[in-house]
Design a protein around this nucleic acid. Sequence first.
DNA 1: CGGAATGTGAACACTTTGTTTCAGGGGGAG
DNA 2: CTCCCCCTGAAACAAAGTGTTCACATTCCG
Lengths: 216, 216
Amino acid sequence: MLLPIYPPDPTPNLVDAAVEAGYQPVPVAGVDDVIERAPESGWAPALVEARPDLGTAVAIAQKIADEAQLPVLLVIDRSMTDDIAAEGGITDFILTPLDRTELRVRLARLGKAPNGTSATEVLSFRDLELNLATYQATVAGVPSDLTYMEYELLRFFVENPARVWSREQLLAKVWGYDYFGGSRTVDVHVRRLRAKLGEERSSWITTVRSVGYRFG
Amino acid sequence: MLLPIYPPDPTPNLVDAAVEAGYQPVPVAGVDDVIERAPESGWAPALVEARPDLGTAVAIAQKIADEAQLPVLLVIDRSMTDDIAAEGGITDFILTPLDRTELRVRLARLGKAPNGTSATEVLSFRDLELNLATYQATVAGVPSDLTYMEYELLRFFVENPARVWSREQLLAKVWGYDYFGGSRTVDVHVRRLRAKLGEERSSWITTVRSVGYRFG
DNA sequence: CGGAATGTGAACACTTTGTTTCAGGGGGAG
DNA sequence: CTCCCCCTGAAACAAAGTGTTCACATTCCG
């Protein structure tokens, strides 16, 4: 996961620690960089070091929090602790000398949504991701605009892969137990789903002749 | 300011540090104590030490956060850092050996400083600001005259962005759990809100067909 | 080769949402 | 206390968006 880090020449030890924590640090020169170079999948929280001085760093941190709408972890020297007491816009801070485990945990905590919704609300399969909270699907990082039924069908498949489902079962499970309609409806939705998944991935849904469909 | 501290026999050094930070620590035996002995002026954030073991402390901390609705600062040993990564309900944590300045700053940041102001008086999103104290909203610095319901709806969205909310959820959370009315009411208010936010910002509220609305 | 099953494209009908309008009611001014 | 304004919620209508169905082409397997 890409993690913006300021200043552009961050302390090597901090970069190492971020890499060790599973992030890919990207040095940025300011908030404009953060906004312009935002990856499709979004940034991890931002890391801001209190260099060259605390005032500059705090200003940058506040801008990143406000304009780029990112949580910011400020890395400060122990002697500066007092000075950030009154500052807003800093989501969290960590003191040097750096404790690498603490850095990892604090970054992970910032990565969660404000009100505690965790990242586990994302279903994934290969390079496909289904965000259950936002009802958004991405294929290889690119947002795919699925309709409601396409989304529901795909979700069922991702949740129940590697087994054949008959059209009747799919109608019952995805459309609802009380649904009564032609089983060709499933065919059409499978076709549209395959089309939106793209050439490569369309084979994820296998047709089992005379039986039904299988995903994965 | 009174500060609940767990366990009932806290480490003397921690108590000292809390006193030095301007609080009056009150040892509590559990969440019931916190609720029953709540002072008129309200508690400061709660301090929970990871004693006798981390599991117990985390359970207590989560209960205090959930039932007593208090921010919780967890005091843990450096070796336990890893174990709290996945735990929810912990507002913040601090490592031992204790840095007294860090303790004071973290407690203050949790929202209820001894002589400071509450941390969340102004909500913001991009160039939108909601002043919770005055019930005024400004868009790009320009005051926007939102009605009560529009304000409440927008506030809910700003506080809970990036997630789809069904009309029923919005009715329950914004209008009140006991409200019973047509779900089209939500539509109309969303439309009015979009109109007042202006052309550009109206897309902040996304319609997710057959599901609900998403902000941000 | 022949029949059955499935893929494909497009038309149709229905659901969902956007928009406008209107009546009731609460609160403030006089 | 009364009047008036305007917020609120609901209903009616308009406009998309979406799901379903049908007709036909294609593939698969005996």
